[in-house]
Design a protein around this nucleic acid. Structure first.
Lengths: 335, 335
DNA sequence: TTGAAAGCGCTAACAT
DNA sequence: ATGTTAGCGCTTTCAA
């Protein structure tokens, strides 16, 4: 159907091997004839056959929970820029924060990629079977498996960032501090939760159990969490939301309930919102280098692809608290 | 290296063909032995070899200018949901609004996918070579080629939506109306531009040339466009921005310049902003069914995959003007 | 139902 | 520099 290397060989009057050499950039005598034959036949090499033979696909898989999340969008951008130099192409796959979906996606990547950058949906001990089967380099992005010794990873200091947020709220005088956490089964969910509680504790403020709401990093759960928390008999005076998407949901709930920020409730969240600077008030957030985090993951991967066989490396990037307008002392302290 | 079908055959004590049949769901006698052999060897079929032989990849390529754009993020979600039923997996690729990048991406997809959903970076007459070479079904999403007769496409009524926005502004009394347009070389850029001008014209308002700014659908160009327009000796009293990302940029510029919306400037844009309802004022926008647009593209593709060979279909979905708070009569009319 | 054998399109020895 | 040949891992006739 589609022209093959043999068709080109026939037209050019040389052997198949010569065409192959030409295609792979080696010097050949009949270059012009071959170029003409390729143009005439409309030939284009079959990637599948090429990969099957060579064992290299020149592709890498990037598997994330949600490409539309600004953090992952930025990280993917960092990966692309960093990987483009090597003429590797990228297959981007969504898992929707679902371990089952992730399993399917990884299975579909078996044999089709030379390496994987993965932000696991959950921190389960069970490393996905596909990852074992593939035997390709893997770099974990932003999240790990419970057994975190096997692969390279690029994380951020979630504990530190969340703790800084907690201390900041405590220092403003808040005592009734709430948290909308991500799933404790995923690295950022667990570590931000633990870091926040530890930070509050260290500042002499305990987080009451009823002030902890566990979401799933998606917008709706932030909405529900905020609704729940502000409906409490004694509502919190400050709220920390563990990621950007849940922060959006929470903000919508607060808006609906006419809760004023920061007058009625101080608000801090982890990760920037895309439109954060356009909101009133501007949001105090824990931030981190997003594009760089992706680029670093790509660069670790590039090392592996070059055959680096050192022990797995774990990189942890700094986070920082960007203080803006969404926090103030609680009403009783202001009064 | 990795176990192959022959390894399984040896362990199970049957022929390679029997294993293949088993894998493809046919009845075989030694089923249990084969299952045991597969488990023991850790075998997983090689997709490459399978596809090379069968000519089917069970994958489809989705190529968009920017996965992080909320519109495309939604559309991709619609595609995924719609395609998941058929156990097709999706390779998502970014072109960064660049025709050159698009060419690379499409090349990399040759032979690796059974079909393509593409939102072309530009409306060029030159259909990318890779698309010809592949000979797979193609559905165009939201954008066409200049020669728009060849492929199925799912568009929206950009002219109508933009015209409605123009009429609305004119009816409010605006006479100095500006537009930040997308690239006129891409379908939505051109059609929204033309529709807006036609709509204004129809309402008896001409758009002065200096009130037209051509951007590239990305945030920075919206920022620059707004900066430029408000610096005019006689600045506009109303602004239409042709997509969501440029609207973000424009809003940032207006915020910086302390231009109040709608008091100093009425603001309408095309496509929702993810956080639109959290902004003050809420934004009047031209909207359309985003997830549905993706789902429809996927469904046209599914028809083709099933062997439907009818003439190319062009679907055009409705747009509508969601009037919210960002527009008011101009100051001179209010006074 | 099963096995033997051919071959998908390409690359990479090996020999010339 | 070029041609010959084997074979990557699988599916699919064709006979048995």
């Amino acid at each position: 159907m589609a022209p093959t290397i043999d068709d080109v060989a026939r037209v050019a009057g040389v052997s198949r091997a010569t065409i192959s050499r030409f295609l792979n950039g080696r010097r050949v005598r009949e270059r012009l004839a071959i170029e003409a034959a390729i143009a005439k036949t409309g030939f284009s090499p079959n990637h599948l056959a090429r990969s099957l033979k060579s064992g290299k696909t020149r592709s890498i898989g990037v598997v994330v929970p949600d490409v539309a999340n600004p953090f992952f969008a930025h990280a993917v951008r960092g990966i692309e820029v960093s990987l483009r130099e090597d003429r590797n192409n990228i297959f981007l796959c969504n898992t929707d924060e679902s371990a089952a979906r992730q399993e399917e996606v990884l299975d579909s990547l078996i044999g089709r990629v030379d390496a994987i950058i993965l932000a696991p949906a959950t921190e389960s001990t069970m490393v996905p079977r596909a990852l074992e089967v593939m035997r390709v380099p893997v770099v974990l992005l932003d999240r790990e498996f419970a057994d975190h010794s096997r692969y390279d990873s690029v994380l951020v200091d979630n504990e530190g960032g969340a703790a800084a947020a907690a201390r900041y709220l405590a220092q403003l005088g808040h005592r009734r501090i709430a948290i909308i956490s991500g799933p404790l089964t995923a690295t950022p969910g667990r570590t931000r939760h633990d870091g926040f509680l530890a930070g509050a504790e260290g500042a002499g403020v305990g987080i009451r159990p009823e002030y902890e709401y566990i979401g799933d990093f998606r917008e709706l759960s932030g909405y529900l969490g905020a609704k729940t928390l502000i409906a409490l008999p004694e509502p919190p005076t400050a709220l920390f939301v563990a990621n950007n998407l849940m922060a959006v949901g929470a903000l919508k709930a607060l808006r609906e309930a006419r809760v004023r920020i920061p007058d009625d409730l101080s608000f801090v969240s982890f990760d920037e919102l895309e439109l954060g600077e356009l909101l009133e008030p501007t949001l105090t957030t824990v931030t981190r280098p997003t594009v760089e985090q992706g680029a670093l993951a790509a660069s670790l991967l590039a090392d592996r692809l070059r055959g680096d066989v050192a022990a797995p490396r774990q990189c942890v990037l700094e986070t920082s608290l960007s203080v803006r307008e969404s926090c103030s002392p609680p009403a009783n302290v202001r009064a």
